[in-house]
Design a protein around this nucleic acid. Structure first.
Length: 852
RNA sequence: GCGGACGUGGUGAAAUUGGUAAACACAAGGGACUUAAAAUCCCUCGCCCGUUAGGGCUUGCGGGUUCAAGUCCCGCCGUCCGCACCA
């Protein structure tokens, strides 16, 4: 008997799948379509175990759905633009393009060695001009549709690297690479108007019933819808007014001040004639934007000396402050403060000695005596000290006061969103160029579609800080497409989230002439099952939902939601290690001697907590060693067993030997039994003994269990079911022809059910069992419900809730029979002798509880 | 601060959704086979008392509902995640 040799067999089947284009998807098939997609990888260097987990899960679904009769689309590509390529260029002098392509080549080979059922003919990288040309075309289409805007906004500016940083790249107020304090700078940027779809993006969440609640909640919070009012406070002695947004218009008679953001136009106006105000504003703008600073920052204000008139009382004026806690980019950038019912306003009012008048009176308190001390009252109650609102509850008061404001022409009902437009400009080289040209005479001119793509130049240098496109001697100098005069090309590139916001649609058909093959998109989309990390719960998934809506508005696709089903798989974590100089160390760089962890040179190592595998922290584990020693099937099986797919997982190799033993055992069971089995396709013997029937029951239970497990993303329990079936086959008794027949049936079932997880071994075993049609073209199995459950059940017998005996009964036995059988038990007789039976509960097929 | 998830043996976990807690696997220990090793096979394996028999306890802690709670409710403790001056 030969051992199963994965090295040879896996290569053989991978070649076969590739040569025959086995997994190429064809939109003309008459089978129902199924689009399964895993979030495409960033080509960072090499594949790690997190990738293996992600792509194996998708592959299980793809292979399973194919066997269930679906026409499956399962593509792969590369999210290939981004910062790490530029960092590599700066650190090692390699060109970002060649670094990226080298990584893609490596990772493609690694993924192929996993035996994934992927349609590689659709592969692309987002850094291919043949991809980003179309992204530029989409941008122009969005521009035509009014979905793009150019406006000034504040950004995090790194003065050393001379680039905009995303919020995530600012650590403790400093640039993550340069360590220089980040400045706030106002820049002209391109924005995509995602806020146009705020309501629709929120409503759409309701329809996504195959998304995790967690992700839907996160998106809903991010969109942040609130209902309130816009209220106008006229500035005394001028014809100007301050517009504020509030969700608590009911507390309007508890107002004691107005406050505006430091960036508010009125603040600049005040600063123009008041140096102290200017100094205060400058100070506020300088102070940090990090979470920690915001949390601990004291509420500070500057009294402008201006007074505003209460919108519902001409004789009532309120002071106007510039305040550090008011944000320009939410609402109107101005608020009215009601200290009694808002924690922040209260802190501010106490500091500046402003009145605190309670107007919402909690149950059981009186309007005359209720006072707020050091905690604002934010609960429900009845309005008091509020003139015509007195006696109303909060909800009614809101409605009534808005009516009054509208009548007085001082305010209106307003829905507000936290969501802000998406700034897509980045001062980087390795991204998709924004296809516009700036002309002194014509302004901003889009590059005509027939002149696309605007290609990145190859001859760039990274020797000085800033954007290499901007330093390039010639690239940005072009003639204006409109008037022909010398003009300047836009040197910003797109946020790389643009690239990943439509790639799933491009996979449907690689139309050379247009961004999308609309017919193909409408055939394959939406993605039936999308799989990826929860870290993209907001950004990528929200942007993609927005993009799909934008594409629909442009008439390019026929749906609004790109992903019908979403599964967020857990991360694969690993400890992190740092040497004495703080540099990250890879797991292979450390040595364990006794309980001590050091470098191989004996230097101290600081062991950090276990976090997601990532190249920047060097805590990755490369699957190549595992695949080389155990094979891809074992690696796949191991990643799927034991842990529920949505849960994070600390990487450990303990257990991988068990996975290896399993693959060998399956092979051994088949090859040892082979000579004694009937021919493939033999008729079932007319007489089946008990042992054969028992094996058939195990088999049908496994079909049911594995099917349920895969359908419900519980691959770990599907694996356990396959272990049980394997144990049942190995332990099967009986040597008659019926037993041999049942054994073949069970072995074939084991192989068929294992194929999504162990595709190479399964194909080889299938052939060994005498089949000529490859397994991946063979249908899935249906469980026979009458065999998937035993015809006898073990019923627990409890006395006062404690287990005292078990009885075996025919399934479906009626209550009276079960009760009678329970009372036959010696234990029951002893326990009930001479006692009153107070109650007997019988749940058929499950339990008897006797209460004495 | 707000919102959410989670907490079960030495370990990863399972539990038909209120009905025999610990399936399946890893690790560990014992045994068989072998000159030996590997591989394989068999046994033990939540904790405590007890030689077997048997008994008691057990799902982070404390209450509650119920004939019955890992599962439902209330209150703590702990871990993790998301958001965070959002008016």
């Amino acid at each position: 008997m030969t051992r199963y040799n994965p090295k040879v067999t896996e290569r053989k089947w991978q070649d076969y799948w590739q040569k025959q284009d086995c997994f190429a998807a064809d939109a003309t098939s008459d089978r129902p379509k199924y689009y399964v997609l895993e979030m495409f990888p960033y080509p960072s260097g090499r594949v790690h175990m997190g990738h293996v987990r992600n792509y194996t899960m998708g592959d299980v679904i793809a292979r399973y759905k194919r066997a269930k009769g679906f026409n499956v689309l399962h593509p792969m590509g590369w999210d290939a633009f981004g910062m790490p390529a530029e960092n590599a260029a700066m650190e090692r002098g390699v060109h970002p393009g060649s670094w990226t392509r080298q990584n893609i080549a490596t990772m493609r080979d690694q993924l192929k060695s996993l035996g994934l059922a992927i349609d590689w003919s659709r592969e692309f990288a987002t850094c291919d001009p043949s991809y980003y040309a179309h992204e530029q075309a989409l941008f122009l289409a969005f521009l035509d549709e009014g979905l793009v805007e150019r406006k000034e906004s504040f950004v995090n500016w790194d003065p050393v690297d001379m680039t905009v940083l995303a919020n995530e790249q600012v650590i403790d107020g400093k640039g993550w690479r340069s360590d220089a304090p980040v400045e706030r700078r106002k820049l002209s940027q391109w924005f995509l108007k995602i806020t146009d779809f705020a309501e629709d993006l929120l409503d759409g969440l309701e329809t996504l019933d195959r998304w995790p609640d967690k992700v839907r909640t996160m998106q809903a919070n991010w969109i942040g819808r609130s209902e309130g009012a816009r209220v106008q406070f006229d500035i005394e002695g001028t014809d100007q007014a301050i517009e504020v947004y509030t969700t608590r218009p009911d507390t309007l008679f508890g107002a004691s001040f107005c406050a505006i953001a430091a960036d508010h136009p009125l603040a600049s106006q005040v600063a123009g004639s008041n140096p102290d105000a200017a100094a205060f504003i400058a100070d506020v703008q300088r102070s940090g934007t990090t979470e920690e600073e915001i949390e601990t920052a004291e509420k500070r204000g500057f009294d402008t000396g201006l007074k505003v008139v209460h919108p519902l009382d001409d004789g009532w004026t309120l002071p106007v402050y510039i305040a550090n806690f008011v944000l320009m980019d939410y609402g109107t950038g101005a608020i009215f403060g009601c200290p009694a019912h808002d924690e922040r306003d209260l802190e501010f009012a106490r500091k500046y000695g402003l009145p605190v008048q309670a107007v919402v009176i909690p149950d059981g308190e009186s309007a005359d005596s209720f006072a707020v001390d050091d905690v604002a009252y934010t609960g429900d109650g009845i309005l008091g000290n509020s003139r015509f609102l007195d006696g109303l509850n909060v909800e009614d008061a809101k409605a009534r006061v808005i009516d009054e404001l509208e009548m007085a022409d001082k305010g209106t009902r307003q829905v507000n969103y936290r969501l802000r437009d998406w700034g897509v400009s980045r001062q980087r080289y390795w991204g998709c160029p924004i296809p516009v040209i700036h002309c002194e005479d014509c302004g901003t001119v889009p590059v005509p579609v027939d002149q696309l793509p605007v290609e990145l130049p190859d001859d760039v240098t990274f020797d000085k800080p800033g954007n290499p496109l901007d330093h390039h001697p010639t690239w940005k100098h072009v003639d204006c497409p409109s008037c022909g005069k010398p003009a300047i090309r836009e040197t910003d590139t797109f946020d790389t989230f643009m690239d990943s916001s439509w790639y799933f649609a491009r996979f449907c058909g690689l139309n050379p002439d247009a961004p999308l093959d609309t017919e193909a998109v409408n055939h394959w989309m939406p993605v039936d099952q999308y799989i990826g990390g929860v870290e993209h719960a907001i950004l990528h998934l929200l942007y993609s939902r927005f993009f799909t809506r934008a594409l629909e508005r442009c008439g390019l696709v026929g749906m609004k939601e790109p992903f019908e089903g979403l599964f967020t798989q857990g991360m694969v974590n690993h400890e992190t290690y740092q040497g004495p100089d703080g540099a990250w160390l890879a797991p292979e760089d450390i040595a364990r001697t006794g309980g001590m962890i050091t470098t191989h040179d004996g230097a101290d190592v600081t062991v950090g907590r276990s976090v997601k595998m990532s190249k920047s922290k060097k805590n990755t584990v490369d699957p190549t060693d595992i695949i080389d020693s155990y094979g891809a099937d074992t690696a796949r099986w191991y990643m799927l067993s034991d842990s529920p797919p949505e849960r994070d997982l600390d990487w450990s190799e303990s257990g991988i030997d068990g996975a290896w033993r399993h693959t060998q055992r399956v092979w051994r069971l088949i090859s040892e039994a082979l000579d004694s089995l009937p021919e493939a396709g033999s008729d079932m013997p007319s007489q089946m003994g008990d042992a054969a029937i028992a094996l058939r029951r195990s088999m049908h239970k496994a079909i049911q269990g594995v099917t349920d497990g895969i359908e419900n993303f519980r691959f770990n329990t599907a694996v356990a079911q396959l272990y049980e079936l394997t144990n049942a086959i190995a332990g099967a008794k009986g040597a008659g022809p019926d037993d041999a027949w049942a054994k073949r049936e069970a072995l074939e079932t084991l192989v068929r059910l294992s194929e999504p997880m162990l595709p190479h071994l399964a194909e080889e075993a299938w052939a060994l069992l005498g089949h000529e049609t490859p397994l991946f073209e063979t249908a899935w199995l249906d469980a026979d419900p009458s065999l998937a459950t035993d015809d006898t059940v073990t019923i627990a017998v409890q006395i006062n809730g404690k287990l005292r005996a078990t009885i075996d009964m025919a399934r479906g036995a009626d209550k009276a029979d079960i009760e009678a059988a329970a009372f036959e038990q010696d234990k029951v007789k002893q326990a009930t002798e001479g006692k009153d039976i107070r109650k007997v509960i019988v749940v058929p097929d499950r339990i008897v509880n006797i209460v004495v």
